[in-house]
Design a protein around this nucleic acid. Structure first.
Length: 695
DNA sequence: GAGCACTGC
């Protein structure tokens, strides 16, 4: 539907009305005086020649929603907020908000815009991310923030009345919070017709975005009646500055993409001019194997391969190891970075000229029937494939080698991935909407509707936690308290319960630890880590073990050396401190008493039970291999070998989460007494046969 | 005795 043109190379094409008001603009470096023609909906006349700035301002002025499509380097993220500010959209105490899905992007975009405008960051231009608010309520006119922060702001100001324009960037990524935000913004617009939305998207998803924001008229407009504002979204397409990337496909499907990766990398190194290579594989396992194979083969194949530096890249690496991939290649050497899709959107590597795309990534899928989230290797979408290829064209024309056939790309690959909304557990999203007063969750207008099964499951969980009442409304005060805490509702419920049990200090620490990836350093020789863990291990389980680590960390005066010595991730512990401080503040605001239970681990385990009673499991009688069954659905589960309770196998346990591989493993496990279950959740367990004394 | 794509509040 969209075509680009460059001045001098092609004539701008006036689109038919049916194609829906697409306005073209070219922002290539050569086109300092680009012109475009517009065809806006229901208007047959040609519009005046626009420059980028003029066209944006014109569209924002005349349309309630503008969808802007542009590839990397089109300047949409940094320039549009400045145009809007110049045009007076931040006058009268209003603020222009621009969201990004990631913290790092918020920080760097804000810094760039402040620099371009010659102002101090945190004054006229500021940003807000979790733990960091670099704005000034009197001065800030342009505010960058993560979409999650904007959602949180809605809890205090549901109509986002501070903002005159809201720009949602990277909307094509369809993250959970972006989709919720888009749904809510559409709703807000009905109450605030003066609010302007700009939806920015990298790939060509303009049509579905525009369709989503199309407001159906309740009645045909009367003759002569004119609100002056067009409710049909305008679409503007901007050409990016990326260099051309030549695409190569394999002729026959490959059976082993790891082997194919290795040979492709070696042949690029052999035949192509200098320039770094970026390889996309699925996970740590694949990547470590590929690094090893390429290194070995390069050594065997003689001196031509000596100039190869092979580096892995995934989020589990330590900071120092990740930093290696950012250092420029030494003269005469070629860097090969083997990465997960962390390099697709989260991190940008300079100097990449060649991309090797396996066509796969690990993706999360949620099964609402079993209530289990699975991580599986799955084919990527065309949108992802294009994004990966684009990574080769940042400094000069590049090449992308796809380890799948062109036929597969054209005919079988889906155009977009499944939105996160349709692959996730929705408990947190549902409670957030409830807190914003959206009563009819099943009828909520999502950009992509989740399945009714996962919606119903989420409502069930919230009901069982006592967060929703029989009318599916938030309970008071528990429901509202749980919604205020930026945590999984089961963890929030555990915190609320700890207030009455007198162990909130400890439970807040446990909650903070559970919200970081892992506090342990992952090392190759696992035995040392296990020995280190024994120093902190508690007979009650992992939660109490976390408390011991936290205490030790405080006693060491938060020392990084102490962490290193004990195989504890220092950066993770610093994040624990930050999260804990935020939770403590919110808990106090909610009127919770912060009390310590000293060493009474029984009340502590009761608090865990109050949040996680649904995850209770009983050891199978006569089980020799540590098989448990969940109380709720009699599913076969095992304690994960990383747990301190592995091989201890207490009769009754509660787990924090399940990971499924060949077996279902319980991670972060604590032992409980079965009688606590009915105490904590009588409504949930009244029908369940407990048989606590059977063995 | 086993394994963790990636964000975010």
């Amino acid at each position: 539907m969209t075509q680009f043109w460059k001045p001098g190379t092609a004539k701008p094409r006036l689109l038919d009305d049916e194609e829906g008001g697409v306005l073209f603009y070219s922002a290539t470096p050569s086109s300092s005086h680009s012109y475009g023609y517009a065809s806006l909906e229901n208007q047959r006349q040609r519009l005046p020649v626009f420059k980028y700035r003029t066209s944006i301002l014109y569209l924002v002025e005349t349309h309630s929603t503008t969808v802007i499509v542009g590839e990397t380097g089109s300047g949409k993220t940094t320039q549009i907020p400045q145009y809007l500010k110049e045009a007076g959209w931040a006058d009268g105490g209003h603020i222009i908000a621009c969201t990004q899905p990631r913290r790092l992007a918020v920080q760097s975009v804000a810094a760039r815009v402040a620099e371009e405008m010659g102002v101090k960051l945190g004054e006229e231009v500021g940003y807000t991310i979790r733990f960091e608010d670099v704005t000034n309520s009197d001065l800030t006119k342009i505010k960058f923030l993560t979409d999650g922060v904007l959602l949180r702001e809605m809890m205090d100001d549901p109509l986002l009345s501070k903002y005159s324009v809201i720009m949602v960037d990277e909307a094509h990524e369809r993250s959970l919070s972006t989709d919720i935000l888009l749904g809510l913004l559409k709703k807000i617009q009905r109450r605030r017709p003066e609010l302007r939305l700009i939806i920015a998207s990298a790939t060509i998803e303009a049509k579905s975005m525009a369709a989503f924001f199309q407001i159906r008229k309740r009645r045909p407009r009367l003759e002569g009646e004119d609100s002056g504002l067009r409710t049909e979204p305008a679409v503007l397409s901007v050409e990016g500055r990326g260099y051309n990337v030549q695409i190569f496909y394999v002729e026959e499907p490959v059976s082993d993409y790891l082997r194919a990766t290795v040979s492709t990398v070696l042949s690029i190194h052999d035949k192509e001019p200098m320039g770094d290579i970026l390889v996309f594989l699925t996970g740590q396992d694949d990547i470590d194997t590929a690094v090893q194979l390429i290194t070995e083969e390069a050594q065997n194949s003689g001196k031509s391969s000596l100039g190869l530096i092979v580096l892995p890249l995934y989020s589990g690496l330590t900071r120092a190891d990740q930093d290696l991939v950012f250092s420029p290649s030494p003269r005469g050497k070629r860097k090969v970075v083997i990465s997960t899709n962390i390099a697709e959107t989260s991190l940008t590597l300079e100097g990449i000229v060649y991309v090797v795309d396996s066509g796969f990534s690990k993706q999360r899928f949620y099964n609402p029937i079993t209530d289990i989230e699975n991580l599986v290797v799955a084919p990527i979408s065309k949108a992802s494939a294009r994004q990966r290829a684009g990574r080769a064209g940042r400094i000069r024309p590049g090449k992308c080698y796809r380890l799948y056939t062109e036929d597969y790309f054209v005919n079988e690959m889906s155009s977009h991935g499944i939105p996160e909304m349709q692959r996730s557990n929705l408990v947190s999203s549902v409670i957030q909407l409830k807190a914003l007063g959206i009563d009819n969750i099943l009828g909520f207008d999502w950009p992509a509707s989740p399945s009714s099964e996962s919606m119903v499951r989420a409502l069930e969980v919230l009901y069982s936690l006592g967060v929703l009442d029989d009318d599916a409304k938030l309970t008071s005060p528990v429901g509202f308290q749980v919604a205020e805490l930026p945590l999984d509702p089961m963890i929030s419920k555990m915190i609320i319960a700890s207030d009455q049990l007198g162990c909130s200090e400890e439970i807040i620490t446990v909650s903070a630890v559970l919200s970081v990836q892992s506090i342990w350093i992952s090392v190759k020789g696992q035995r040392e880590l296990d020995e280190a863990k024994l120093r902190f291990a508690a007979a009650e389980g992992d939660h109490v073990t976390f408390l011991n680590v936290y205490k030790g960390f405080l006693q060491s005066n938060k020392s990084s050396k102490w962490c290193h010595k004990n195989f504890i991730n220092y950066h993770a512990m610093k994040k624990v401190l930050e999260v804990r401080e935020q939770l403590r503040r919110i808990a106090q605001r909610l009127g919770l008493d912060l009390k310590s239970c000293e060493n009474d681990t029984q009340v502590l385990r009761k608090a865990v039970t109050a949040g996680f009673f649904a995850n209770a499991c009983r050891l199978e009688p006569y089980s020799h291999n540590g098989m448990y069954k969940t109380v709720r659905s009699s599913q076969e589960v095992y304690i994960h070998p990383s747990s301190v309770l592995f091989r201890v196998n207490p009769k009754w346990v509660i787990y924090n989460s399940l990971v499924s591989t060949d077996r279902q493993y319980m991670r972060n496990v604590i032992s409980i007494e079965p009688s606590w279950l009915r105490e904590a959740a009588p409504h949930f367990y009244q029908q369940q046969p407990m048989n606590a004394n059977r063995h």
